[in-house]
């Protein structure tokens, strides 16, 4: 469960201070599917970074379970990312020189999993996103939707408790977008994850249990 209390994030930019998050207080129970919407520059990605232990807030606290993400050092945050949190990015962010299977395996590298187990689990994760026959393909040899499936397999192969997706369908056409959302929803349902999806797309947001709107760093529940 996420517990955010008065989270403020400020950036210094050319002598000017940008307040990306402005006193956000928020609770996300385990297993919830949350959609975050809002205009460009509203603070969606910044909020996701707080949830993803990628950065610490300027003020306020972010708690994930028992861990206070706003207080932990870089090494501890890295450990939490490695074990607890899966990321899916708009740009897929696959390593172009690694095969699909190897890309998925990178997520297991920090966990001290043996090489053979790593290969098995990666193959299984790829099979679960429908790419069991594409293990050795390089990202460039896959379509956009297939690449995003590899990215989802990479995010889920470690069995995280949280899956964070920043505009996961932003680079995909409409059909593929639905496909990916179906997949995410199915996995969320099957694995009981907490799934937070940032999206511009109202159709995507409509599938969520809960919808949040961020504008100028302020979060508002959408009924």
């Amino acid at each position: 469960m996420y517990e955010l209390t008065n989270v403020t994030k400020k950036y210094q930019q050319g002598g000017r201070t940008v307040t990306a998050l402005d006193g956000v207080s928020l609770t996300i129970p385990d297993g919830q599917l949350v959609a975050i919407q809002g205009p460009t520059g509203g603070g969606k990605s910044t909020l996701l970074q707080m949830l993803g232990a990628l950065d610490r807030p300027t003020d306020g606290t972010v708690e994930l379970g028992l861990a206070n993400l706003s207080r932990l050092g870089d090494r501890k945050l890295g450990d939490i990312r490695a074990k607890e949190i899966g990321f899916v990015f708009q740009g897929f962010n696959l390593i172009p020189t690694l095969s699909a299977q190897e890309n998925v395996e990178t997520a297991l590298a920090p966990l001290g999993v043996t090489a053979s187990e790593r290969r098995e689990r990666a193959a299984a994760a790829l099979a679960s996103v429908g790419l069991g026959d594409r293990l050795t393909h390089l990202p460039a040899e896959l379509s956009g939707g297939q690449q995003q499936r590899v990215a989802i397999a990479r995010a889920l192969v470690k069995n995280p408790t949280v899956l964070l997706a920043d505009e996961p369908t932003g680079n995909l056409d409409e059909d593929t977008r639905d496909e990916i959302m179906d997949l995410l929803e199915g996995l969320w349902r099957a694995q009981g994850l907490t799934l937070v999806v940032v999206t511009h797309d109202t159709a995507v947001a409509a599938r969520a249990q809960r919808r949040l709107q961020i504008r100028d760093g302020v979060v508002r529940e959408v009924a």
Binding site: D79, A82, K83, I95, P96, T97, L98, S99, E102, E105, T106, A109, P110, L111, G112, V113, T114, A115, R118, L138, K158, N159
Partner: peptide
């Protein structure tokens, strides 16, 4: 989940294997 102890750190990891990496560069 196993923690990042030192022994597994020394293991050869996929992306630790530079060969496929280099092939693309």
């Amino acid at each position: 989940m196993v923690g990042t102890s030192s022994a597994p750190e020394l293991e050869i990891h996929v992306y630790d294997l530079p060969a496929p990496e280099l092939a693309g560069r």
